[in-house]
Design a protein around this nucleic acid. Structure first.
Length: 303
DNA sequence: GACCCGTGGAC
DNA sequence: TGTCCAAGGGT
């Protein structure tokens, strides 16, 4: 039996009950879920996604509010640039596509914050198109079940896309469902830490299992690190600004970190990223918070 | 391709 | 406790 059929059968009986998978959910809520799920676990996305789609049920609703609203509602999901880009994405959809999430891959790819994975995911899951949807879960599953390697390569390659494309059935809507099944298997069964082969439906054909579950051969990727990095300092500053409805004076930011040079560098990078704006001489706020920002944004969008 | 970008939970 | 990891994207 083809791997697609086995995975789909397993998925129909074991899929997690996730709200963005409910039939009839629109392309916009699906797009929002995909962006939130970039590098962020499902359990943390669930409550934020629910708030977002209730508050901003369409791109036009989000575009009508400020980037600061989006960043604040993002809460502690992490990588707040995603919130800023999602806000810009909504504005771009309103401008370029009359408020409707586009369905073509190239149109999706041209939107802020939408890369190769997310474009394919939206085209497949929201519009039922036949595209290989290749995230790290799918690459890991393919590496093991098909290639017999313990771990996937460090980045998605054209070869990965071609390999997964060959694992999809012909019918587009079914192919999309199969992609969801592959992702689910990688997320729940064939994970990075564990290989729950006892619960895996693919054991009879798994190349890695057949080879005796050989250890990883490639170089181990270097650890991320966080404590003491600029990212931590940026996070502290963003948390302070999220928690304040008024612009925050510089001295309140100064006390957040003990190394002035690093603190200034973090603040400067937030300003450069457009996440933070300076208001007055020495006060700071989330970008889009102040009237001036709104005027600037309007001007920028208009040109 | 290398590097940067948050946050919290599991082990 | 520290390490690893989580549906990537942009530069």
């Amino acid at each position: 039996m083809p791997i697609a059929e086995v995975a789909l059968d397993w998925f129909e009986r074991n899929a997690r009950d996730l709200p963005w998978r409910v039939p009839g959910v629109g392309a916009w809520p699906i797009l929002v879920s995909e962006v939130m799920l970039q590098q962020t676990p499902v359990s943390r996305v669930l409550p934020v996604w629910t708030d977002w789609v209730r508050r901003w049920p369409t791109p036009a609703h989000l575009a009508a509010d400020t980037a600061a609203d989006a960043i604040r509602a993002w809460g502690r999901l992490g990588y707040p640039r995603r919130a800023m880009r999602l806000h810009a994405c909504a504005a771009a959809i309103v401008e370029r596509h009359d408020g409707e999430v586009p369905s073509r891959l190239e149109q999706l790819l041209a939107l802020p914050g939408i890369g190769d994975y997310t474009a394919r995911a939206v085209a497949a899951f929201a519009y039922g198109q036949r595209h290989p949807v290749v995230d790290v879960n799918v690459r890991r599953l393919a590496a093991r079940a098909v290639s017999g390697a313990a771990e996937p390569g460090p980045a998605t390659t054209p070869a990965d896309l071609a390999l997964v494309e060959g694992l999809l059935p012909a019918e587009p809507a079914v192919a999309a469902r199969v992609s969801a099944a592959y992702m689910e298997l990688g997320a729940v069964i064939c994970t990075a830490r564990n290989q729950n082969c006892a619960d895996c439906p693919l054991t009879s054909s798994c190349a890695w299992l057949a080879a005796g579950r050989p250890a990883s051969t490639g170089p181990s990727r270097r650890p991320q690190g966080y404590a003491g990095t600029d990212r931590q300092v940026r996070g502290l500053i963003m948390a302070e600004l999220r928690g304040s409805s008024e612009p925050v004076p510089g001295d309140r930011i100064a006390v957040l970190w003990h190394l002035p040079e690093q603190r200034d560098r973090a603040l400067a990078s937030l300003l450069a990223d457009g996440l933070v704006t300076r208001s007055g001489r020495d006060r700071f706020a989330l970008a889009g918070e102040t009237r001036q920002d709104s005027v600037m944004n309007t001007a920028r969008l208009g040109d």
